[in-house]
Design a protein around this nucleic acid. Structure first.
Lengths: 239, 239
DNA sequence: GTGCTCCATGCTGTATACAGTAACGCATAC
DNA sequence: GTATGCGTTACTGTATACAGCATGGAGCAC
């Protein structure tokens, strides 16, 4: 398992609630808190070194993000993952992200600085492609792919669309960390990212959107294969 | 102004936080709390008859829904509305809702009971179409259209999609209540809803999605015309 | 008259105490 | 041995007290 923490958001913890929220989110993403784990407030209080008020606020926020299930008068649990929920997630991403990619492509065509940023990432992808397979290379790829994804999100004009996609990322990250990463997958995925970069830099919005759609379809298939092989801890396969 | 409270959600206030959340949401939707209005916690405490804790939770929830802006160490305000935000909202709805309509169409084809519910609504739309124009008729239409929308949401299989659309509804309702309702619009809108019903009942997913897309385009145009005519209270036209 | 500084006020962010409820286990009756 | 009822426990939901920061105004210096 190649545990990759998401580094996309700036992580400006102005309040303790922010801090607890971010730390809990990371632990859920990384799978350290397995799906279904109960999250009593007092337990979090001593672990996080904060009082119940910020802990509560963090739990409520995680609940709206779908990472935590909140049962009235019973408490919080890490939300469970089912095959259906994985399918729903990828279907929804396939609806949103190509649209965002279109906006990012238009944005890059209009803004030279943004375009340069994507061009730089393209050369980085190409450099990774030439490297020999290794865990370090896989890590570098996932880190770069993550930056690429966040760049797309940042270049999305529509605020609703941007927020919706950003909210899905923890779910995606969690799946990646819960399922076993397939080394073969890196090879394919690098090529897909190069396709996306090329289309984006060429100003071909439709092409970029199509490439992303293909990438998502591949990703879903990979995750399903991996989940089917290794059951994964805490993953509810009944869904 | 035909103020139409949304009646779609079941309104099960199990906690005081739920109650405060629902009441505040209603007041913002109806425009009673104008965009930009400051919302000091203590003021809400005495108005809602609850302590600060549930009030805080309600404000946080409204903030994640985008109905309230939360400035650190400064407090909450009713979120402002700009022309850009209206455009963003409708663009996003145009992405999501046709997809939901497709799923609802498939659902109605598979589930006779669901199909009957939509068939009933179709006859109600037809009955409204035959009535002479009047405020009561407009109210009846909006109430029915609201039930129709919630039925579509309820018939949406994908949970992410369903949640995303449901979260947008308060924004839509607020726009409707902030802008002045055009009596002409009712006529057109009834016809559009009949088109949607017909396609849905015929199992024509593409047709239903197209009809909905057209409906949204019309709705956006109407709101822009109305906002341009009457400035509306608290609507920031600079966006 | 104008600008700056300092103080007072009001608000949020946090901690904590209290009440109420649901789940769990044990004891007892059958 | 099994089922049912009661008591205990642990947790959430709520209220409230306290600390710290930001804002606005008054007063003073220039």
């Amino acid at each position: 398992m190649t545990a990759v923490p998401e580094g996309g958001e700036p992580a400006t913890d102005v309040s303790k609630a922010d801090l607890v929220h971010r730390r809990l989110k990371e632990e859920i993403e990384l799978g350290e808190l397995a799906p279904g784990t109960p999250l009593p407030e007092l337990w979090l209080v001593e672990r996080m070194g904060a009082s119940r008020t910020p802990v509560r606020e963090a739990l409520r926020r995680l609940a709206t993000e779908g990472l935590v299930d909140l049962v009235p008068r019973q408490g919080a649990r890490v939300s469970r993952v089912s095959l259906q929920s994985v399918r729903d997630l990828f279907d929804f991403r396939s609806l949103l992200e190509p649209a965002a990619m279109r906006q990012a492509t238009e944005g890059a065509a209009a803004d030279p600085q943004l375009r340069r940023a994507f061009a730089t990432m393209r050369t980085e992808f190409a450099r990774i492609q030439r490297r020999a397979p290794s865990p370090a290379r896989a890590r570098a790829f996932y880190e770069l792919a993550d930056r690429f994804d966040w760049a797309i999100i940042g270049a999305t004009r529509n605020e609703h669309l941007r927020r919706a996609i950003a909210e899905l990322r923890p779910h995606t990250a969690r799946l990646r960390n819960l399922s076993h990463v397939d080394p073969q997958r890196v090879e394919v995925s690098v090529a897909e990212h190069l396709r996306m970069c090329d289309a984006l830099l060429a100003g071909d919005a439709d092409g970029a959107a199509d490439a992303l759609a293909g990438h998502l379809a591949q990703g879903l298939e990979t995750i399903f294969r991996n989940l089917a092989r290794g059951p994964g801890e805490g993953v509810d396969l009944l869904g």
